[in-house]
């Protein structure tokens, strides 16, 4: 149905888009190309690129053989799946509970707080909270007479501790966004279900969840993208007492942190770029798979 008339304003449309187009060429297309280019070379940023050695896919091979990278990948994957599979369901449940209260502005303000504080400082505060000897978390646990943990200072519990803070930090904003979706669901649907004798659990699974699908998919995608790039939180949590963030013994090493160290501490730009490109492929493919499966299930539903 596109008539010629509709294309009359083509020029002005291009004019409106000129800054973004230039921006994306300079700050997206060029860097991505450049990254791929240097990922095939060995470059320490100190010498001109023209004199660097072409090494083919050696950097990629090296990355896949690097135990620290594999560790970082595992940790990132654990973190991301915990956020997606524990954090988001939890926030949806809280959103539903929140919607049962008429006056909930106060709660919404409180839930909002963690999402407006820089993640680095959240990490730093929690590093203090987690301290095994004088940290308030262990103090509270002791009051209840439960066994205390070493949290960040034990390779077995360190990544778990990071994930816990990650869920804490994202819970509020995810809840608030889910709450927006819950609020949009017409009450009449619930009333109809009540007449049919449906209980709360049934209502949640048969009305709330299906209607929340767009919001859930949105949360999944955004949280996936953010969690895969987790950096600030780990630096905040482990960069204080343990001078080298990602410790102890790489037990909280994550992808972006390792890339940062590889690039700016060890000056291996080629290897770092190779890792960045692998991360990009990972993110891109998981997001596409996600979107596809969501679209498919949507089609099945209607």
């Amino acid at each position: 149905m596109k008539s010629k008339f509709e294309f009359r304003y083509q020029k002005i449309a291009y004019l409106y888009l000129i800054i973004p187009v230039v921006f994306y060429s300079v700050f997206i297309i060029f860097p991505v190309g450049f990254s791929i280019f240097i990922s095939l070379r060995r470059w320490n940023m100190l010498v001109p690129i023209s004199v660097t050695k072409f090494v083919g896919f050696k950097n990629y091979l090296r990355v896949f053989k690097d135990p620290v990278f594999l560790m970082a990948f595992k940790n990132t994957a654990i973190y991301t799946s915990c956020i997606l599979l524990i954090g988001i369901p939890l926030s949806i449940i809280i959103a539903v509970l929140l919607s049962k209260l008429k006056r909930n502005a106060f709660w919404r303000y409180i839930l909002f707080i963690p999402s407006i504080v820089p993640l680095i400082s959240i990490g730093m505060v929690w590093a203090f909270l987690y301290d095994p000897t004088w940290g308030p978390i262990n103090t509270i646990i002791r009051i209840f007479g439960l066994p205390v943990s070493k949290w960040l200072w034990d390779t077995k519990t360190a990544m778990f501790s990071v994930t816990l803070v990650g869920i804490w930090a994202t819970l509020g904003i995810n809840t608030l966004i889910s709450y927006m979706g819950v609020k949009e669901i017409p009450i009449s649907l619930y009333e109809a279900a009540e007449i049919d004798g449906g209980n709360e659990v049934k209502k949640f699974f048969y009305i709330t969840l299906p209607l929340l699908k767009p919001i859930i998919s949105f949360l999944m995608i955004t949280n996936l993208i953010n969690s895969f790039q987790i950096f600030d939180l780990v630096v905040g949590l482990t960069g204080q007492k343990l001078a080298e963030p990602g410790g102890p013994a790489n037990s909280t090493q994550v992808l972006v942190l390792y890339m940062y160290q590889t690039a700016f501490k060890y000056l291996k730009m080629g290897k770092a770029s190779a890792m960045a490109f692998i991360l990009f492929l990972l993110l891109f493919s998981t997001s596409i798979v996600f979107l596809k499966s969501l679209k498919k299930s949507e089609r099945e539903n209607y």
Binding site: V68, D154, T155, K156, E244, G247, P248, A249, N250, K265, Y266
Partner: peptide, 21 residues
């Protein structure tokens, strides 16, 4: 060469041993 990275690597493995991992 790579002295700093070598040292971090050794540190991490020593820590692994300390912690009984």
């Amino acid at each position: 060469y790579h002295g700093a990275e070598i040292k971090v690597t050794l540190m991490n493995e020593i820590t692994n041993a300390w912690l009984g991992k």
